[in-house]
Structure formats: C-alpha cells, structure tokens
C-alpha cells in the first residue's frame, strides 16, 4: 500500500495520541483539516494493510502488575525454527529477534507474577533442550521509544519504568 501525504500526516498525529473525548476522530479531523469520515476511512485502510499494528492503549507492564525479562539464548542454527515455535507460542513472549551473535535468539517475556515468569523460563529450557539462556531483566529505564516520525527520525521519551 502506498501512503500519500495525508496518510503520513495522520500517522504522525495518531502515533502521539488519540484525544480522550467523545468524538476523538472528529477532533483529529479538525486539527488536520480533514473530515471525520476521511480520518476513519484512512485509519481503517492503514490498519487493514498492517501499517498500523494496533490502534489502542499502550500500557506500562509493571504498573499493570506484570513482571518481565529479556532472554538471550544460544541456539544451534538447525534448531532455530523449532525453538522459535516453542518460545513464540507463549502469549507473554512479545518480541523475538534473531541477532548476529553466539547468543542468537533474543526474546522478551512478560508474566503476571515472578513465579509464572520462572515457570515459563524453565518450561522453555525443558521443552527445547536449550540450557544456555541468559536472563537480563531491566532494572532501570532511561528512555523508551514512543513514535517514528514519518520523515525518518525516531522520537523517544524518557525516563520511566516499565516493560521487560
């Protein structure tokens, strides 16, 4: 899907916030010189095209009551697919990337309690046979990503606490 100028303008704006008011799309429309129908139609299209991953609340996992960690696993290349299948099946695993390093699989886990977090890490070790998994929980968050400007510059905010 090709984004036009008005799509980009709208994306820049809705990444920052959606007004907390009865007619939020109308408020956005007035700000951007569009109609409410146009805002709704463009947002629907970009959501269906997968450009907008989610349009909703973005929460601080710790303040919601969750705990989490970043994990780095050393996975033999031939086992990557199978290990990823096991790891990714957990709803609490929100991000998983392969990276150029001996520790090649990096994933985050969020869980409603410390006990459940421990259980998930142990289960992953047992089910994949991968023993070498570093656990690197966050102790301090100095900066956290908020939005991407559509002209190619990232915006971030900080400091704060939260996430894994």
């Amino acid at each position: 899907m090709q984004l036009d100028e008005r799509d980009r303008k709208l994306l820049d704006r809705v990444q920052k916030s959606i007004p907390l008011t009865g007619r939020p799309y109308l408020a956005l429309a007035r700000e951007l010189g569009m109609s409410e129908d146009e805002v709704l139609a463009r947002l629907k299209r970009m959501k269906e095209a997968g450009i907008i991953r989610r349009l909703g609340g973005i929460f601080d996992s710790r303040k919601v009551g969750y705990t989490g960690t970043l994990c780095a696993a050393r996975v033999p290349p031939e086992a990557v697919e199978e290990v990823a299948r096991v790891v990714n099946a957990y709803p609490g695993v929100t991000h998983n990337y392969l990276r150029d390093h001996q520790y090649n699989m990096w994933f985050t886990i969020l869980a409603p309690s410390e006990a459940r977090l421990r259980e998930i890490v142990e289960e992953i070790k047992v089910r994949t046979g991968i023993e070498d998994i570093l656990e690197l929980p966050a102790v301090n968050i100095y900066k956290i990503f908020v939005t991407f400007r559509m002209d190619g510059v990232g915006h971030a905010h900080g400091p704060g606490k939260g996430d894994s």
Partner: peptide
C-alpha cells in the same frame, strides 16, 4: 497514573 502510557497507534516498523 502512568498505567497507560498513551492511547495511540503502534506501527509495524518493518513496513515503514
């Protein structure tokens, strides 16, 4: 209270 960071859009950045 900071429970919700913001109400807004999260983009699929691989696509932008």
């Amino acid at each position: 209270r900071g429970v919700m960071r913001r109400l807004g859009a999260a983009l699929q950045h691989l696509r932008v």
